[in-house]
């Protein structure tokens, strides 16, 4: 009782101070930028610095407001952009699935390992993700190239005569994505699986349930939060991935992150790049809310 009143009496001043720091930071540097993305997405490209038209102009006492939806019409009308969105979603979906198929058994193995070994095993999975992401993608360039290690090995063994084209294909992009994002799948799955009560499985076994029954009716349903968290942690960033399709992909790999990059850096068309980003945010808003809800649920347990 007294604790409560003490806290209540003493907190307000410090409370506001603590609140304002991160709140203002995120408001200014995370939320506000999106207002500018929206603003510039309705501007038009122009040869100037910065390279877009102003929204307001004041000429002879007349306030002019320029809002152009041409960028959106242009993007939605061009099959290249639409294709890029669809292709990104497709590739993100399948890479998430591959990550889940490989990551789930891995997380399960860690969660079922002896308690004192678990952190070591987990560290083993997470360690690569702390080294440079860029360098991990680069490692695959050397492996998958036509004169790279895998082709060299296969030819030396006499399995193939000519190198198989692996680099600059969708296959290489999938390998790169699964390789880079696997730890992000394993971590939330492990955090969930380790909390399961073994007694449930034992009870089910006593009642005559086989492996698959136990897996599909107990373990999987109980780990749904971990599955959603891990999948979103892979799916959402992969939709906008740039580095992996740039280094490992080829002309067939059109992903929206790469298209946005090219519009911005190569064509210097900031308004179209902004429109592309805004549409991407709209596509991702449902998965992001989903992730946020599960993240909160886990935190409040």
């Amino acid at each position: 009782m007294s604790t409560y009143t003490t806290i209540k009496r003493l907190l307000p001043k410090g409370r506001c101070l603590i609140l304002s720091g991160p709140f203002l930071w995120l408001l200014v540097f995370f939320l506000m930028p999106f207002i500018f993305v929206a603003k510039i997405s309705v501007a038009e490209a122009e040869l100037s610095i910065p390279p877009y038209t102003a929204m307001f102009d004041w000429i002879d006492g007349v306030l002019g407001i320029r809002v152009s939806i041409n960028n959106f019409l242009w993007v939605l009308d061009d099959p290249l952009y639409v294709q890029a969105y669809l292709n990104s979603i497709k590739m993100a979906f399948f890479s998430t699935l591959f990550c889940l198929l490989l990551g789930y058994p891995m997380a399960y193995a860690i969660a079922k390992a002896p308690k004192e070994q678990q952190t070591v095993w987990l560290l083993l999975v997470l360690l690569p993700s702390w080294t440079s992401f860029l360098i991990r993608v680069y490692a695959w360039v050397g492996l998958l190239k036509n004169n790279g290690l895998i082709n060299g090995l296969l030819m030396w063994l006499g399995i193939i005569d000519d190198p198989i084209q692996m680099i600059n294909t969708n296959f290489a992009v999938y390998v790169g994505i699964v390789y880079s994002y696997l730890p992000f799948m394993v971590l939330p799955l492990y955090a969930n699986l380790v909390k399961h009560d073994n007694a449930l499985l034992e009870a089910a076994a006593d009642l005559g349930a086989g492996h698959f029954t136990r897996l599909f009716r107990i373990t999987l349903p109980l780990s749904i939060n971990g599955i959603v968290a891990g999948s979103m942690l892979v799916f959402i960033p992969v939709v906008g991935e740039y580095v992996i399709p740039e280094l490992l992909g080829g002309t067939e790999t059109i992903m929206i992150g790469k298209v946005l990059w090219q519009e911005f850096f190569n064509n210097r068309d900031w308004p179209v790049a902004s429109a592309l980003a805004l549409i991407m945010v709209f596509i991702l808003i449902i998965p992001i809310t989903l992730f946020h809800r599960f993240q909160n649920k886990e935190a409040n347990l």
Partner: peptide, 13 residues
């Protein structure tokens, strides 16, 4: 989870 290209572009703007 926000893709890097979006964070980068929005902050630059």
């Amino acid at each position: 989870v926000m893709p890097d290209v979006i964070i980068g572009l929005s902050m630059l703007l």
